[in-house]
Design a protein around this nucleic acid. Structure first.
Length: 599
DNA sequence: TCGACTAGCACCTTTGAATAGC
DNA sequence: AGCTATTCAAAGGTGCTAGTCG
């Protein structure tokens, strides 16, 4: 609450009102109660359940971009043993992070708020060489989807800030074949595409008692007001299609903004699994920042000094649209290290040859000055026209620009960045030599996606966030089903505390040099924040054994109060690929990023 | 030998073009 | 002529299964 109050008093924006609800939360909870598994295939597989969201609190006249990314929930690899998922080792090296851009993006707040937002077009793959832009994940790893709402003053000048939402019940473990028969049954009975596997075609009666039913539509809705299965209606065949229907006879759970909701998010039975950030606030590295990867956190880290950060929200409130250049800057781009525009391998003609006009942006990645890291595409045979610059020491004026934009975004305004902008931004200099013409999309063939983010240098993380866990979190986590066992439960006494005062992220072992987890209660603190950097040197996470087992996808309210400084990265590294299928882009777009999301 | 993964299969829904009716 | 509703086929999404791989 303190965080938000302070922030809102500075920015005078409407950010506090932005809310996102997971429309099919009940369905997700059904799966998470068993242990959600998501099939990943070489060609890409849709998620089921899909993310069906409702947004409110946006400015109806402003444009917003909605992004979906999926981050590792932890650093473990899993195996299904004894009817549950068990951590059996460390996670594999993190893959290139990709973001799925909602096909409607950018759209006005009125647009987003007038319909159900679905990310069902997003596909997951285990093909590390995927050229379709699908989100690449490791099999048998645990992941957490995130949704980001970014105000887009225009394509190149994202302003106003960002809201990020995490629904813990949407965590899943990736598999190439279902392990848990219960999951298979749920999928068959809930997914219309699997109807053929139902007994007698419509055989869902055995499971429908589990599934919420929206009487006036075929869509699921979040009726999870108190985790009472009895609250679910039953029976008509639940259609999990994404046909939106704003009306619901069963009001969905509304997840208020974390930053604004401390008084209202206190229901102990709330399933508010929301994590929201209200703006890009990122650390600005010192001028002499080392080019080599640095420890993310000191072991006793507390909130850094304000001098290290720039509150973008403040900048926005002080900047007119014509002046704003890039109010919201991905943290990964705000490095002292040069940024480079990655060459796009020409050998990949798949995308460029498609009549559907797939658009690829050149990779933009953070380059370690060290030669070993200056060539992000290990398999690229092409020399890279490296465009680089240095960022100012403390958020001084820099700027950032995309060399190209998808056609459906070209109608938006593009203004030159203002060198004297009062807020931090980045500028890709001389991009025109790589995108010399207005043929923006065609200028960039597909990216190879072979540059694992784990090999990238990372900004030194300076924790600024405070993680607040409500009592409901305790309750929910202590009453979790034990589908997943915990044979190696840590014994940190602090984890047994009966109260959960705001927790500085820096105090969470995973964010410091200590063990990644303390207890299962702290699991999700760190899980949701594990995105800090899975590529941490092993020494940072070796002091305490990682959790061997996890609870089964709990749902609980989660408050992440980023006060006074917070960082979130929606980095625009690598590639911005647009799958275009006409003006509406029904298939969505993918943005290749290194999602060092820092909560 | 075993776990993880892949490709092909049947079955189904979705989608969009073609057609018919008003 | 223009709009809407219907039909139909192609495309694509499912889980299952046998086979392959390490």
């Amino acid at each position: 609450a303190d965080c938000w109050d302070q922030r809102s008093s500075q920015s005078h924006t409407q950010k506090a009102d932005v809310k996102m609800e997971l429309e099919n939360a009940s369905l997700w909870k059904q799966f998470s109660s068993v242990g959600t598994e998501m099939i990943i295939t070489k060609k890409g597989r849709r998620m089921f359940p899909g993310l069906r969201l409702n947004l409110s609190g946006l400015n109806p006249s402003l444009r917003y971009i909605l992004l979906l990314d999926i981050i590792p929930a932890d650093n473990s690899r899993y195996r299904f043993q004894g009817g549950g998922w068990q951590a059996v080792g460390g996670a594999e090296a993190r893959l290139p992070d990709r973001v799925f851009i909602h096909p409607d993006s950018p759209a006005t707040g009125a647009h987003w708020q007038s319909r159900t937002i679905s990310f069902h077009y997003a596909k997951l793959t285990n093909n590390t060489l995927d050229t379709h832009g699908h989100i690449i994940l490791h099999s048998l790893h645990r992941y957490q989807p995130r949704v980001h709402v970014i105000e887009a003053r225009d394509v190149l000048r994202w302003g106003g800030g960002q809201h990020s939402f995490v629904f813990p019940e949407t965590q899943f473990i990736t598999v190439t074949a279902y392990q848990n028969n219960k999951i298979t049954e749920l999928k068959i009975n809930a997914n219309p595409f699997a109807k053929g596997f139902r007994e007698n075609g419509m055989n869902i009666h055995g499971l429908l008692f589990l599934l919420p039913y929206r009487s006036d539509t075929s869509s699921f809705t979040s009726t999870y007001s108190g985790a009472q299965p009895s609250s679910y209606s039953s029976l008509p065949i639940p259609d999990c299609s994404d046909a939106s229907n704003p009306q619901s006879t069963i009001p969905p759970a509304v997840y208020p903004s974390i930053l604004s909701s401390s008084p209202t998010i206190t229901s102990p039975i709330s399933t508010t699994p929301l994590l929201q950030q209200t703006s890009f606030i990122f650390p600005t590295p010192p001028p002499s920042s080392s080019s080599s990867p640095q420890p993310l956190l000191p072991s006793t880290c507390s909130s850094p000094s304000a001098d290290s950060y720039h509150g973008v929200t403040e900048s926005v409130s002080q900047t007119t649209p014509s002046e704003a250049t890039f109010a919201a800057v991905p943290a990964d781009l705000l490095l002292s290290q040069p940024l480079q525009v990655e060459p796009v391998p020409a050998e990949n003609h798949e995308l460029s040859d498609q009549s559907s006009a797939v658009f690829a942006y050149p990779n933009i990645y953070l380059s370690n000055p060290a030669p070993a890291t200056s060539h992000p595409l290990a398999n690229s045979n092409q020399p890279a026209p490296s465009l680089s610059w240095s960022l100012p020491a403390h958020g001084g004026p820099t700027s950032f620009a995309f060399p190209s934009v998808p056609p459906h975004m070209q109608g938006l305004s593009f203004q030159n960045v203002t060198p004297n902008s009062s807020h931090p931004s980045l500028h890709l200099q001389n991009l025109s030599h790589q995108a010399p013409s207005s043929a923006l999309a065609a200028a960039f063939p597909a990216c190879s996606f072979t540059h694992p983010s784990s090999s990238l240098p990372h900004p030194p993380f300076q924790p600024s966030s405070h993680l607040t866990v409500t009592p409901s979190f305790q309750q929910s986590t202590t009453t979790l089903s034990q589908t997943v066992q915990h044979p190696q439960k840590p014994t940190n006494p602090s984890s047994t505390s009966s109260s959960y005062p705001p927790v500085d992220v820096g105090a969470i072992p995973q964010f410091g040099h200590g063990a990644p987890y303390r207890t299962e209660r702290a699991l999700h603190h760190s899980s949701l924040l594990s995105q800090l950097d899975p590529t941490l040197p092993s020494t940072l996470t070796s002091s305490t054994p990682p959790p061997a087992l996890y609870s089964a996808f709990p749902s609980y309210p989660l408050r992440l109060c980023k006060e006074p400084h917070s960082s979130l990265t929606i980095p625009f590294r690598h590639l911005y690929r647009q799958h275009q299928h006409g003006p509406s882009h029904p298939q969505g777009s993918y943005l290749d990023v290194s999602t060092r999301g820092v909560f």
